[in-house]
Computed example of a mutant assay.
Amino acid sequence: MKKNIQDAVADFFLKDRTLREVNSFWHFFLHPKNRDAKEQALFTIWNQIEDHRPGMEKDADRALTKLKHNLTNNKHTRYALSFRIIWKYAAFLLLPILLFATAWEYAIRTKQVETVVLSTSNAMTKSVTLPDGTIVMLNAGSSLTYPKTFLGDDREVTLSGEANFSIFPDKEKPFVVKVSNLRIKALGTKFNVNAYAASKIVTTLEEGSIQIANDRESIIVKPNEQVTYLPGNHGFEATPIDVSVATAWMKGDLIFEETSLSEIFAGIERYHDLTIEVEGVLDDKIKYSVKYNKSETLVQKLEVLCHMTGYISYFFEDEKHVVIVNKKR
């Protein structure tokens, strides 16, 4: 690896280069990976130049005289100059400046970037436009961590809870959402991530394409497809879905499909900003599907659950504390 880096740096200064290749080299060279080896390669070139300074001085003088003559007598010559000439003598004349600039660039790239933590309390949602133009709608009881400026090769944020993402397209810098040990990667798309439960992460794609990956496997998700990830099983399960169900919370509705009572109560807690206490043990092996629209009250929601299950009742300790009673105890 070290030899390859030395060869790449040496070739850059000693061979012809197109503008595209020049840009590609600096993208490679200024990346933090293998930093020490790249710096050593640059110093090696400088030492080689020091050993041949007298001869290079004469070559540089002749080259600059010829360059001046060509520019004076042929207005088109400037467009045909060899990158080899430019970079060979830039190495001799400007390498100390490049060394300083490289160190400065590393300092900028490796410094601690200031981060922003956006949080929502229960019973509230919030929308934010990220530095790249991506729009994020954050559901209740959630948090999003993102940098004030996106540096590096991607745009990475960290999510806890639930959010809907409308990604600003940038093919050169993918957008990545970190959730637990998952990385959800997108270029330009719209998707929803529900990660309230530590035991289940649900991603729903509305538009475009995304890749979901952990340290073992990955999956490409299609529009109108929902992927459920169970961290304990390290597996992905993809199913077709009506996207409006996964994004109903953005309109103020609550929809649960094949969901345990514990998860339903947790959703109601976030929605109404209250505490639900359960007396006894709920049977979470049984799954329920229920839809609440924005206009329904807390009492109406609880009454529906009591009727559906047939074995629970409830009472209010106060306006912010509800007790659910398992009548089968």
Rank of each mutant, 00 (worst) to 15 (best):
P240Y: 10
S180R: 13
S209A: 14
L230W: 11
I167N: 08
E206H: 08
S218M: 15
V177I: 12
N214Y: 08
T203R: 01
K185E: 12
V227E: 01
I212K: 05
S209P: 07
F175E: 00
L205H: 12
T239Y: 10
T203Y: 07
A163H: 06
G152H: 08
S166P: 00
F165D: 01
D215R: 12
V157S: 10
V157W: 04
A198F: 03
G188Y: 00
I219Q: 11
N164D: 03
N164H: 09
L151C: 01
N194A: 11
A163D: 02
V193T: 04
R155M: 12
V227H: 06
T239C: 09
N164G: 01
N164M: 09
I201A: 06
P240G: 08
V157K: 02
K171E: 13
G152K: 07
T239A: 13
N194H: 04
G235M: 09
T158H: 03
I184S: 02
V221L: 15
H234D: 14
N194Y: 02
N192Y: 03
L151Y: 15
E217W: 05
D154Y: 06
F150N: 13
E207W: 05
F191T: 02
T158L: 02
S160W: 05
K222E: 15
P169M: 11
N224Q: 15
P174Q: 04
K185A: 06
